[in-house]
Amino acid sequence: MNLVLEIIAGILIVAGSIFIFLTAVGLVKMPDLYTRVSVTTKASTLGVGLVIVGTAVFFHDLAVYARSILIVIFVFMTSPVSSHMIGRAGYLDGASLWEKTKANHLEGQYDLKNKSLKNYYDKKED
């Protein structure tokens, strides 16, 4: 039983670390800020998730289960918020888009003086 748990934990940790490694490669490879933010959510979902699950499987103990569930909940709750905030701050800072980007519905919708954002579909109905 212990050997089976060790093998499962080892496979999970290796899979998670491969995803983390690919995230860092993507961080260097991707051409603009927006695709970089897309890539980094991979590290915090599957990468950290798989490694933490592997740890919990290996220790096989209630205290460790509680802590790993807490870590996964914290990471899954906070990482979308932080990447969303970085992305919006980057957009307002004027980060340039990749030249092959197909469409930008957000262009001209921000009103920085009044700090407001218009609805894209209002314009079409006029």
Binding site: V37, T41, K42, Y91
Partner: peptide, 30 residues
């Protein structure tokens, strides 16, 4: 909804319009 969009890699939400009827997202495979 916005957090779930952000959690799936490849798409993430940028902002919600003031009247809360439109969500602006960035997607990688369109």
């Amino acid at each position: 909804f916005a957090n779930m969009i952000t959690m799936t890699p490849g798409t993430w939400s940028i902002d919600v319009s003031d009247d809360r009827k439109t969500l602006y997202i960035h997607a990688m495979y369109v």
